[in-house]
């Protein structure tokens, strides 16, 4: 369960605060993989960031007894001036690992980016970044009850996609996903439940098909 307690989130704009969420109260069940649905700019990534602790609510709070991952996506999480190895070491250390070598090796093997593993992340292509981000998750996922994935699988060649999907599949038993993706087919493949963002609020649907129907009836023109 993830509890949203009177959650509000706004961003300051030139024309006053812009509310993304207003007074959201929700107990989000976490027994199924959840797809987050909404058009661009409605707050999908913000929701993922809030759940992952990368951003703080303006009012209210989110709490959960579960171990939730950081938001896995293309933006953020990796420091551009550091190499992939240094980034991996950093993440391992802040999660309390004293010996970081097994994790470094695992990510290096998974990412398969060769010598670029020891080059600064800012020199990477977006595909290479996503390989590192994905590899990092794979090295830690046995710690997490929930993985937050923000448009991550969108990048990567066929070979890497296949590999990462196989690995995700393998982890399903232990780890649940909360996922943002613009490809409905990919969401259908991974998720069973849906969460629709509308009217600055969250609506949970036990079946993904119901959520997609709601999403289309709300936002389709």
């Amino acid at each position: 369960m993830i509890y949203f307690d009177k959650l509000s989130k706004y961003f300051l704009t030139k024309k006053g605060p812009h509310y993304v969420f207003k007074n959201v109260n929700l107990c989000l069940p976490t027994d199924k993989n959840i797809a987050v649905l909404g058009p661009n700019g409605v707050g999908k990534s913000t929701l993922i960031r809030l759940m992952g602790g990368a951003d703080n609510p303006s009012k209210g709070q989110i709490h959960s007894p579960l171990n939730i991952s950081w938001p896995l996506g293309l933006q953020g999480g990796l420091q551009g001036s550091m190499t992939a190895r240094e980034n991996v070491r950093f993440v391992a250390r802040i999660h309390g690992y004293k010996n970081t070598y097994p994790i470094e090796n695992k990510v290096e093997d998974f990412a398969e980016i060769g010598k670029f593993f020891d080059e600064p992340v800012k020199s990477y292509s977006s595909g290479m970044r996503s390989r590192i981000t994905f590899g990092l998750t794979m090295a830690f996922d046995f710690d997490f009850d929930i993985l937050l994935i923000d448009e991550l699988s969108a990048v990567g060649d066929a070979n890497f996609k296949q590999k990462s999907e196989a690995l995700l599949e393998e982890k399903y038993a232990k780890t649940k996903l909360i996922m943002v993706n613009h490809s409905i087919s990919e969401l259908k493949q991974h998720c069973q439940a849906g969460l629709v963002i509308k009217h600055q609020n969250l609506f949970y649907f036990d079946k993904l098909t119901d959520a997609i129907k709601e999403y289309q009836s709300t936002y389709a023109k």
């Binding site: 070491r89 309390g96 097994p102």
Partner: peptide, 29 residues
């Protein structure tokens, strides 16, 4: 590697330990 990793058990840490770990990681960086 994943089997090797599972041998490393990460204990639940207190807030202070987390802060020490973070500062250590930042310092190395």
């Amino acid at each position: 590697h994943s089997k090797e990793l599972q041998k490393i058990v990460v204990q639940k840490r207190t807030s202070r330990q987390i802060m020490f770990d973070v500062i250590f990681a930042l310092m190395m960086r």
